[in-house]
Amino acid sequence: MSRLLSLGAALLVSAFAACHLLGLREHVSVLSGTAPPGGGADASLGVVYALAWFGAVVLAPILAIAACVLAAGDRLRSRRPAPSRPAWPPR
């Protein structure tokens, strides 16, 4: 489970990095009602960049922290000795 959470965090950060490298940051200005400096204002590109940013800044750290907590819990659980069971039936 912790690997899935780590993978999710990595995917969110990589999606944001891809949007940033594609230059979608300029299109976010559409959300405030101004035209981007380059001209063609596509509002959907601004929304995609904003969602990727929120995913990388808000959701990815939560997923990463949850993955660390689960991994630490699994590690602690594996170190504990198994509880001894009483012989059944008691005599």
Rank of each mutant, 00 (worst) to 15 (best):
S44W: 15
L76P: 00
L70A: 07
V57C: 08
S78E: 06
W53A: 11
L76C: 04
H27T: 06
S84A: 15
V69Y: 02
L63Y: 08
L51E: 10
V57M: 12
L70F: 04
G8S: 11
A50T: 13
L31A: 13
L11Y: 01
A52D: 12
A71Q: 13
G46I: 10
H20C: 09
G40I: 07
A10C: 09
A71S: 13
G73S: 11
M1E: 07
P61S: 06
P86K: 11
A41Y: 01
P61D: 05
A35M: 03
G55P: 10
L76I: 06
F54K: 11
G38K: 12
P86N: 06
G46D: 07
L22S: 13
C68W: 05
R25P: 00
R80D: 00
A67Y: 07
A10T: 14
I65L: 14
G46L: 11
R77H: 06
I65D: 04
V30S: 15
P81E: 02
A66K: 09
Y49P: 02
A43Q: 08
V57L: 12
A82L: 13
G46M: 09
A18S: 14
R80G: 00
A72C: 12
V69N: 00
R91I: 02
D42R: 15
L70V: 11
H20Y: 12
S84D: 07
T34Y: 03
L21S: 10
L45S: 04
L51R: 11
L21M: 10
A64F: 11
P83A: 13
L59M: 15
C19M: 14
A67M: 03
L63S: 08
S29V: 14
L5A: 14
S32G: 08
C68I: 02
F16H: 15
V13I: 13
P37E: 02
A9Q: 12
R77S: 06
S6I: 00
V58F: 02
D42K: 10
S44L: 15
L24R: 04
L59K: 01
L31Y: 03
L4G: 10
A35V: 13
R25F: 08
R85P: 02
A50G: 03
T34F: 04
A9N: 11
A41W: 04
A10I: 03
V58E: 00
R77C: 08
R3E: 15
W88L: 13
V30H: 05
A41I: 06
R80E: 01
G39E: 04
L70E: 09
G46C: 09
A18Y: 09
A9E: 12
S29P: 01
G40P: 15
G33R: 08
S32I: 11
L4Q: 13
H27P: 02
G23D: 14
G73T: 08
Y49S: 03
A64V: 00
R80N: 01
P61F: 05
A72L: 14
A43D: 02
